[in-house]
Amino acid sequence: MTALIEELKKILNGGSAHVGLKDATANIPFDLLGERPHNLPYSIWQLVEHIRIAQWDMLEFSKDGGHKSPRWPDEYWPREIAPPDKSSWDKTLKQIDDDLMAFIEMIQTKDLYEPIAHGSGQNLLREALQIADHSAYHIAEIIVIRRLLGIWKTTS
């Protein structure tokens, strides 16, 4: 079980097969967070805020039978294309990190396979894999936007 938890921690934090959120969001000029290059339907801000909302929902669902999920899809996506200020951006990144640490703590102290009492068959293993999969998908989109904006790392 220890090996499984260690692997889950790796993929939740970005794994070794792809960039993690911290690297994907590092050093982005604030004025570019709301850009939608090539008529994409979302900005970096919208993707990061969506990751925050979805991860928060999965964390709260995993621990609280009284949790009410946001309405899909409207309440999982921010309406605004850019954060109102740098403080909002920083707060979103911090909440993602804090919620992820709380979820990782949970998977280290609870049975991964036990069905979540108020769920419909879900367990912590499923929620961990879903958080990792969902985040990886949208992190890849962030990297694509950064490439299109010319603000991603280049290799020599």
Rank of each mutant, 00 (worst) to 15 (best):
T2M: 08
I5Y: 00
E6N: 15
E7Y: 13
L8N: 06
K9T: 13
L12E: 07
G14A: 13
H18L: 08
H18D: 06
H18A: 15
V19T: 13
V19I: 15
G20F: 12
K22R: 13
K22G: 04
T25I: 04
T25E: 02
N27Q: 14
P29S: 07
G34M: 02
H38Q: 05
N39D: 15
L40M: 15
P41V: 04
S43E: 07
W45L: 05
L47C: 09
I51Y: 01
A54G: 10
D57I: 00
D64Q: 08
D64H: 12
K68M: 04
S69H: 11
W77N: 08
W77K: 12
R79E: 11
R79D: 08
I81H: 01
P83T: 05
D85Y: 00
K86S: 05
K86A: 09
K91Q: 13
T92A: 07
L93H: 00
I96E: 09
D98G: 00
L100A: 04
A102R: 07
M106A: 12
K110E: 10
Y113H: 11
E114M: 12
I116M: 04
S120Q: 15
G121N: 13
Q122D: 13
N123I: 07
L124F: 10
A128Y: 11
Q130E: 11
Q130S: 01
A132V: 03
A132C: 08
D133M: 07
A136R: 12
H138T: 04
H138D: 05
I142R: 03
R146L: 10
R146F: 04
R147D: 07
R147A: 07
L148S: 13
I151A: 09
T154V: 12
T155A: 13
